[in-house]
């Protein structure tokens, strides 16, 4: 009785192990298939579309009075295009030139944004000297 039960348990165990093996095999196969089938470009396209929506909703919330700093800021952050120029910077003149152009944009754009944004602070507004006080 007990011997046959043990046999049965062993049998079930073997079956289970076999099933796990099969499952693992299937899983790795599925991973192979998914890696092979999802094109990198599709992922980029999805990211692009979602980013458009995100940008749309974020930018509509920006106050009208801050539209100039907004444009300056977007100009500065669009200079991340520098990532494309960096690998070529040391190897070609055009790459070096493109890096310089982007660097102008990064530094100029951010410092202009900061200059404008600082104008909108309470401290700056209260700094104005009244003629009457002179």
């Amino acid at each position: 009785m007990s011997a046959s039960l043990l046999d049965q348990i062993k049998d079930i165990q073997n079956n289970l192990n076999h099933l796990v093996d099969q499952f693992n095999h299937l899983n790795s196969y599925a991973q192979d298939v998914s890696v092979g089938f999802v094109d990198e470009r599709i992922v980029l396209l999805i990211v692009f579309i979602l980013s458009c929506f995100l940008g749309y909703f974020v930018v509509w919330r920006v106050k009208g009075s801050l539209h100039s700093p907004l444009m300056s800021m977007t100009n500065a952050i669009s200079s991340v295009i520098i990532l494309g120029a960096l690998p070529f910077c040391a190897t070609s003149v055009i790459g070096f030139f493109a890096t310089v152009l982007c660097a102008i944009n990064i530094c100029g754009g951010f410092s202009m944004t900061k200059r404008m944004v600082d104008l909108f602070s309470k401290e700056f507004a209260s700094k104005g000297v009244s003629v009457y006080d002179k």
């Binding site: 470009r41 980013s51 458009c52 995100l54 940008g55 749309y56 509509w60 907004l70 444009m71 669009s78």
Partner: peptide
């Protein structure tokens, strides 16, 4: 333009940033 370069380099940051800038300019 940033977006286009981002696609050709398969760089996710360029694509995202380009999309923000593009939509922002269009809204303005």
């Amino acid at each position: 333009a940033t977006c286009g370069i981002g696609f050709s380099m398969a760089n996710i940051l360029l694509v995202m940033t380009g999309a923000f800038v593009g939509t922002s300019g269009a809204i303005l």
